[in-house]
């Protein structure tokens, strides 16, 4: 599972020659990445290296300037393809981005009811199922502001799961959390990983990467510098940049 050079139907995500500029800043440089169905990828790298930009391109929250992105057989292009891709891809943000004016239950039922046309009854049943999965069904009637950061992020995960996506993207899901809440969120993500969900996780939590990742991707200056299994990646990094980075984040 370490290397997928060929592009066949087994890949959930195929990114080829992806380039993105913010004005003069070259944010992504010729990025190639294939993700197999069921594969769990952890992307790490220094801030500003393009990790978040890359996964935000996968569900078109960012547009790219050249290259191609194919998600589950759909090539990203017109509005219809973006809609099709977004319906397959869930995303969890660093800042949770829950809807503060709605209750937890309404946060979870909004997508299924409005985008999928489920009845309120079915949407609520589905919402409760996923709230149980992230272990906070008792918070259903509260507003997000009344919950701790860890609980809010678990609700955000459940909100994504309610759309029953095939692929989940996590953009630094624990970076905005107090230390004591990180593990409750990571446990949920590990549980999800073990269920066979295809995932790309941008994180600096290397303990989590060891537990859950099939493959590590190290990015720097908008490029993928190194990829490998967690064992190889942590014990024997191939590049100097990667070694320096790992030393910095594993020191403490």
């Amino acid at each position: 599972m370490a290397e997928q050079a060929d592009t066949d139907q087994t890949n959930a995500i195929e990114i080829k020659g992806l380039n993105k500029w913010y004005g003069d800043f070259h944010a992504l440089k010729d990025v190639n990445l294939n993700v197999a169905h069921g594969e769990r990828i952890v992307i790490c790298g220094p801030s500003g290296s393009g990790k978040s930009t890359l996964i935000r391109c996968v569900n078109s929250l960012e547009t790219h300037d050249s290259g191609s992105i194919v998600v589950d057989g759909t090539t990203m292009g017109n509005a219809a393809s973006i809609e099709a891709i977004r319906s397959e891809v869930g995303m969890v943000f660093q800042q949770f981005n829950l809807f503060p004016h709605l209750t937890i239950l309404q946060n979870l039922t909004l997508g299924p009811m409005k985008a999928r046309g489920l009845s309120r009854k079915d949407a609520e049943a589905r919402a409760m199922k996923y709230l149980e999965r992230v272990q906070i069904p008792e918070q259903a009637g509260k507003k997000p502001g009344a919950l701790s950061g860890g609980q809010q992020q678990r609700v955000a995960i459940a909100r994504s799961l309610c759309m029953e996506p095939k692929i989940m993207l996590f953009d630094e899901p624990t970076s905005a959390l107090d230390p004591e809440m990180i593990s409750e969120v990571l446990d949920v993500i590990v549980d999800l990983a073990e269920s066979g969900m295809t995932m790309i996780v941008v994180t600096h939590e290397m303990g989590f990467a060891r537990r859950a990742a099939d493959r590590m991707v190290f990015m720097d200056h908008g490029q993928i510098v190194e990829t490998g299994t967690p064992e190889a990646f942590f014990s024997n990094p191939q590049t100097e940049r990667c070694r320096t980075f790992l030393n910095q984040i594993l020191k403490h």
């Binding site: 569900n59 929250l61 977004r86 995303m91 943000f93 981005n97 809807f99 004016h101 955000a156």
Partner: peptide
């Protein structure tokens, strides 16, 4: 209203009109 609200609405498949009506305007 923070841009993250619009992005979250997009990721759960809401259209522009739905995003405005259910997420952005009420706030």
């Amino acid at each position: 209203i923070a841009r993250g609200q619009t992005e979250a609405a997009k990721t759960i498949g809401l259209t522009y009109t739905q995003t405005m009506r259910y997420v952005i305007l009420p706030q």
